[in-house]
Design a protein around this nucleic acid. Structure first.
Length: 211
DNA sequence: GTCGTGATAGCCT
DNA sequence: GGCTATCACGACG
């Protein structure tokens, strides 16, 4: 049910693709919120100039250098949080940014956490929105993705086709700027509403029985 | 619908 | 001191 650590002990690009369709679950007290992962980005390692770890190991990025299957949470623009899954074996810093989910359980609660969200597709269609909806903050940095308050389940949620495109907001990353390492479920309305959405190309599909 | 901009704080040079 | 893996809002039309 819950994805094992071995699932994450692979390249960030592989994990980013395979996380699409999986279910992110967050438990606060007795309340459970969940959603199908519909958009991810891979940050491939120290050579990837868009990856935070490319600037070396710092207190902030140290989680990425640790074991796979743990959460790397950081604050962005002084306002929002972003949730990542650490990938690759221990010692190789890489991660997958979880950018958007399609809400499944606890929709009312997530909507309350996102008072500005008028429609369901505004609840978690972006990395900052997702963390607001699911009450993810720095307290979850370095937490296991197979833990009691946060985990990712392998569920069969039907067939989908997968698209890839350039990552968002990494214009500074030189030759890595245009790497097509943003992945999303094609035509899913819960993908972040971004002008780059049109720049995706279908790279494959997945059946309901898994990858 | 699209476009431009301000908020805001921790990180790194 | 400059930058940032974002979001919401107001000004358009």
């Amino acid at each position: 049910m819950t994805l094992p650590a071995s699932f994450y002990a692979r390249s960030a690009v592989e994990v980013a693709v395979d996380l699409l369709g999986k279910v992110l679950v967050r438990k606060v007290g007795k309340a459970v919120c969940s959603g199908k992962i519909v958009e991810t980005e891979a940050y491939a390692g120290p050579h990837d100039l868009a990856c935070h770890a490319s600037k070396g190991r710092t207190p902030r990025t140290s989680v990425m250098f640790g074991r796979p299957g743990f959460a790397y949470v950081y604050m962005i623009y002084g306002v929002y949080y972003c949730l990542n899954a650490v990938t690759e074996p221990k010692g190789f810093p890489a991660a997958v940014l979880i950018r958007a989910i399609e809400p499944l359980d606890g929709v009312d609660r997530m909507k309350r956490n996102r008072s500005r969200a008028r429609r369901d597709i505004d609840i978690a269609s972006g990395p900052g929105k997702l963390c607001q909806a699911m009450s993810v903050d720095l307290a979850l940095n370095a937490a296991s993705l197979g833990g009691r308050s946060l985990w990712i389940e392998d569920r069969n949620l039907g067939p989908s086709s997968i698209a890839a495109g350039p990552r968002i907001g990494v214009d500074y990353a030189g030759e890595y700027r245009d790497k097509p390492w943003r992945f999303f479920i094609a035509h899913n309305p819960h993908v972040s509403r971004h002008k780059f959405n049109s720049r995706g190309t279908i790279i494959g599909g997945r059946t309901s029985s898994g990858s």
